[in-house]
Amino acid sequence: MTNSVYASTMDPGIGRQVPGTGEAARCFKLGLSGCGGGLESISTSQILDLVEKVEALGFTGIWLNEEHFQGSIVEVEGRRCHSPLILASAILARTRRLRVGFSVLLAALHNPIRLAEEIATLDVLSDGRVDVGISRGNNPRYLNAYGVDPEGTADHFKDMLTFLPRAWAAGKIPFGDTAHSIEPKPIQSPHPPIYVGTNTNETAAWATKNGHKIICHGIISMPNQRWLMRAYVDAGGDPAKVPFGRFVYVSESDASARKELWPTIEKLTTRLKGFGLFKREGVIDEAGLEPENFYRDMVIAGSPETCAEKFMTLHDELGVTYLNALSAFFGFLPLPLLERSLDLMGNVLRPNLEKTLAVA
């Protein structure tokens, strides 16, 4: 299936159509992602103040990760993770334009009926500003603590993605000998957009064929991101609709960016190695967690001009137009550096890329 944003020319290197310049491909969007929506260098109460600034800076959306058992007095540095649904409610109440999404909710840990009710409630209260990112949620630590059998998570995930649109549609759903209407119904029609988070090509293709988009998390290595995007596009997906995650840090110059960010890179990669992240298939290998490799391959960093060039390289190769920045570096980036980077992202990088894509 040929997507409308593709030109008729072929890329001989990979044997597929390369991104064209359709209307969707010219609309740049900038989001933030993390346990605290990319703002988790500070406590939740302060996040709500900073969210208002983020909205004023012109960011498209904030995406909240679902994690558990992280962020306490035993962890002096690093991310602080809270209930994403409750945090989303607070953020939506403090904003008027900013969209709030999930990157991602873990299907294995949620009851489908309750999740349908809660997402629809957020959508109603926010006048339709909710995006639903969801994944299988196969972290063995979480499954064990929640008492979930890992053997059933794949079926539960696909069943949930089938159930949610039905729950949000008009009418009742049969439950045994009776039927119920799941309430409330969301504002967005036919329902809030669904983005599937995955590390496998098979699930990326399955999601697309079932009418969903994918969301690419910034912790996934670029080779794996390319495979996922190609599987998504080959199945008929539009790359311009994919929130594409990367670690992002903007400074006044390339030299200052590296100097300011390097201590954070060393702390983050040490923590990620300790988590055994490289043992998770389809994410990143051990070599990718070496600080130099990580900075080069996983991070968009530098002056606004350099960061714009790096994003346009992604756009030209993959057709992405939505940069979803892991701006807090899992909470290791000091708050003053985070705030300055956000200012440069919103005031310089964003308008520059909007203009660039508008005339492409």
Rank of each mutant, 00 (worst) to 15 (best):
V283N: 05
V250E: 00
H110Q: 15
V348F: 00
K209H: 09
L357K: 00
G236E: 15
D234M: 14
T313I: 07
G61P: 01
G20T: 06
T270I: 03
Y142L: 06
N352M: 06
G133L: 05
T321M: 02
E23A: 15
L109C: 12
G38D: 06
G197E: 05
H82W: 10
G245V: 05
A257W: 02
P12C: 00
I119Y: 12
N352I: 03
T200M: 03
R79L: 06
G288P: 03
I182E: 06
R246K: 09
L323Y: 02
H180Q: 10
A240I: 12
E309F: 02
T21L: 11
P291E: 10
V233E: 14
E339Q: 09
P190I: 11
K241N: 13
F175L: 00
R141T: 09
T208W: 14
L314G: 01
P304T: 03
D11W: 04
G152L: 02
A93N: 12
A231V: 08
P12Y: 04
P19A: 11
W262G: 13
D254R: 08
A179K: 01
L105C: 03
G197F: 07
C216A: 09
Q46W: 13
L48N: 11
L261A: 11
E354R: 07
N139H: 10
L109E: 14
L338M: 13
P140G: 01
L106W: 12
L106H: 06
C27W: 03
P351H: 05
G237W: 11
I173Q: 02
H212V: 10
S4R: 09
V250K: 01
L32M: 07
N111C: 09
P336R: 01
C81M: 04
R296F: 10
I86M: 15
F59Y: 06
G147W: 11
H315E: 05
E252P: 01
L39Y: 05
S221N: 07
I42R: 05
A24L: 04
S89P: 02
I265E: 05
I187Y: 13
G147T: 13
F275A: 07
A120E: 15
N3R: 03
P263L: 07
K185Y: 06
A154L: 07
I113N: 12
G58R: 04
